[in-house]
Amino acid sequence: MTVDLFLLQLFTGLALGSIFVLVALGLSLIFGLLTIVNFAHGQFFMLGAYVGAFVLGMTGNFWLSLIAVPLAVGAVGMLCERFLVRPLYGRGIDYPLLLTYGLGLILLETVRILAGTQGIPFNTPPVLSGAADLGFFFFPKYRLFLIAITAIILVALWLFLERTSYGLIIRAGARDQEIVQVLGVDVGRVWLVVFGVGVAIAGLAGVLAAPIRGVFPEMGVPVLVEAFVVTVVGGMGSLLGAVVAGLAVGVTVSFTSFFYPEMATLSMFLLMALVLVFRPRGLFGRAGLLG
C-alpha cells in the first residue's frame, strides 16, 4: 500500500464517515434530549428523499428541495410528537420505541402504496457532479459538498443548543424537567421542537444521500442500523460522540474494504462490540440516560 493509496483510502473513509454522521445526527439528538429511541428514524430519512425527489421533479431546483424537505418532514415529525409520542412520556423507554417502530412500518407501506416499490431516479445536481482535483487524487464534488454541509449543520445545531436562550431551555429540560416546569416553561412545546428538529435533520439527510444511494422505499432500513451503530459507539446522546464515532466508523469500513472487503459491513459491528467492551457507555456517553 503506497502513501498515495493510503491517503486516498483514509480520505474516502472520512468522507463516508461524514455521511454516517449526517444520518446519525437526528437519531442522536432526539435520544440525547428526549431519551426516545426513534425507530422510525430510517423511514423519516426515506420520506425526506421522496419529498426531495418530488420537489425536485416539480421545480427542477435541488436547493429548493434542500429547504422544503426539512420543513415538510419536520412538520410531519411534529405532528407525530404531538399526537402519538406525547401521550407516552413518563411511561418508560419501551413505549415510544414500540410506537416509533410501528410508525416506521406505516410510513414504509404508505410510501410503497403512493409511490410504488420500484424507486425513482435522483441524479446528482449538475453543478456538483463530476470530480474535483485535490492535488494527489480526484474526488467527487458531491461528496465534498456533503462534508461541508454536514459541518454546517453541526455548527448550526451547536450554536442553537449552546448559544441561544431556547437552547438553554432545551438543555435544562433534558437535565431536569420538573425544575424547568416549576420555572414556568412549557416543556411540552420544547419537546415538540426538539423532536421536529431531529426528524427534520433525518429528512434532510435522506435528500442529501439520495444522489449517492438512490430513492426507494427500503432505503431507510440500513440507515437505522448505521445511525444506531454511530450513536452507540459515540455514546448515546452525545453530539460530539456522534461526530467522532461517525468518522471512526467510516475509516474502519474504508480500511476493512481495502484489506478484507468481504468484512466491510461487519467491521462496523465489530468496532461497536469492541467499544462496548471497553466503554459500555460509548466514547462520550453520559451516565444514567437510560436509567
Partner: peptide
C-alpha cells in the same frame, strides 16, 4: 463486497 452494501466508495481506490 458484502451483499446489500449501500456505499461502494471505499472499494474504489
Amino acid at each position: 463486497h458484502p451483499l446489500g452494501t449501500t456505499d461502494y466508495s471505499t472499494f474504489f481506490p
